[in-house]
Amino acid sequence: MSLDTNTPQPIYFGREKSRTNTDKTFSSIVVVASFSSLFILTAIMLYLATTSWSVLKTQGLGFITGSVWNNAPDVQIFQIWPMIYGSLLNGVLGLVIAVPVSVLLAIFIVFIAPKPISKVLTLIIDILAAIPSGLIGLWGFLVFTSTASQWAELLNKYLGWIPIFGNESEQFARSPFIAAWVLAIMITPIITVVSREILAQTPKELMDAAIGLGGSLWGGIKMVALPYARGGIVGGVMLGLGRAMGETIAIYFVLNLVFDKVNLYKILEPEGGSVASMIVAKFGEAQVEEVKALLGAGLVLFILTLIVNMIANAIVSRYRNEEIA
């Protein structure tokens, strides 16, 4: 259709539609605030990258794929694969324990518990989230390790034929198994809070539909609430994984760090790794080059958690798109 020559030119409104001065000031503050987070993120990354660059260049790809850490002046080999793998292993094991507990807890709070009990539980979980990780680590070291070691021994005794529960050292303390429990205690509140928030938003009319069709409460939760909350729960789990991988002090207390060997799956052996804890363990006595290598390890951890968060975002948005479709 050709435009009539008398048709006037349209004037598009753009961003400046009916904005008052207050709106403009408010917008500027919001823009500054949102860019500041991006600025801080970039600044930290740049600092880590520039400071550690010389060491990363010397070590090459071996920095993230090798298993040697030797700071003798004439050797200077810094490789962190056991620590990277350990961080992932601890995180995943922590999730194995924390996810079922958190999701069931959230279901209980939202759908089953009477209101007063819901409130008390919510408060307890918030308090649990606020306990400093150092304190949990100390408790893990002084109190929990002895109990969890006994659980580990039992696992080894009865299920030791399954490779992951094997133990040749006869030592059960300071293993990835115990680190995973401590991490689970720390990430359960995060996953529970996120799951609770999203489950509570399950549309009432859909739950009504499920129950009205002869579904039990569990039927409704399984068919309606969990699929509805799936994206949000996965997001919460990934947040938890991010926290678990970045956890430093608590792991430092309860896990035996082994730098020259990767413990692939023997979770009851007192051998493990954690990038964050390694930085704490080595930093005090490190010389110039080693400090740079530790900052490089920090950079790797930073990128790793970024990747985890990006995966989380991708998963959450995929579920969201599915819902819209």
């Binding site: 009319e205 859909l206 009504d208 539909a209 499920a210 009205g212 002869g214 309606v224 699929p227 819902e323």
Partner: peptide, 20 residues
Amino acid sequence: PVDIRVNIGMVFQRPNPFPS
């Protein structure tokens, strides 16, 4: 109660098919 709801069905005010 599940038997009751199977025998006595319900249609609600707003259409509420399961969207997924």
